[in-house]
Amino acid sequence: MNLIDAIGSFGFSILRLSTPIIFAALACTVTKKAGLLNMSVEGMMLTAALAGVLVSAVTQSVILGILGAVAAGCAVGLIVSTVNLVGKSELYLTCIAMNLIATGGTTFALYMITGTKGTTFSYLPSLAVPNIDIPLIKDIPLLGRIVSGHSVLTYLAFLTALLTWVLIFKTRLGLRLRSVGENANAAQSVGVSVTRIQTYAYIIAGAIGGLGGAFMSMSYVSWFSREMVAGRGFIGLSANNIANGNPFIALLFSIIFGSADATSNVLQLTDAGMAYFIKMLPYVITIVSMVIMSLLEINRRKKMKQQVVAKAIAELHLEGKDH
């Protein structure tokens, strides 16, 4: 019984820890499909986390808090895309700058509002997103323990994966998004405004990243503390990188990386060294998978080239026979 309990709570913490990574990965997926690397997801989440706390503390409404977080994420996305597209700067530099601004700005704002540099805990009466039990499933012994009782935002994360897939593959905007990502010049030539589509992509990514930020400060914990996103945006980025723009594979890898996080948390109490070793694994997996994917891609291109050459030779032979 004890073992089942332990497994149950471990499974529960996997889903809990995966949630921000899922949001981050999906935020990257949307821009990736539009051909852009979203390194600013870290800043989106951090800004949104603070906004969520502030808005919910002022309005005393959870929903407005979440909306505030989403709006803040969108604002960050809009700033990044505007600076990048209008200012003609290199995207990665804009993103790095944005992350710096988010890190410095949130800490600074935190200090100006509460007078402390650390956390809003006990300074601001911010709210938490409620956890919900799923009827029926919650009574199933192990499964109920793992799947039920999560934050609304955790369930929303899975729903967002589905919605992202619908957005990308089943809507007009998604089609344009993909066409811009595949070949911006071709898209432009048939009248798709690349600038506009990429801006949309960044704003949507901001909204999704904003939900991730809201999870951090209104669910994972119920306060904001400085640099609380702590690299989760980058883990999401790598999950998406492995998935290569597929929302469901991004979801899967987010959960795999979330389990590494959960394992590391468990180990932290008994064997801190090993806990750090486990934390390394998601990144190692990412680099290895990048190598493998690149090799496959090179192989595929080589094969394609060979086929084209073989076909051309065959055609030449045919022509030769004709004469």
């Binding site: 600076v83 530099l93 710096l100 601004i101 410095g104 700005g105 800490t107």
Partner: peptide
Amino acid sequence: PAEFITLVQGVIIMMVAAEA
């Protein structure tokens, strides 16, 4: 707090990076 300098750094890069 000293953190405002991180913010300023970000703004500087954003401006220097922008070709326009």
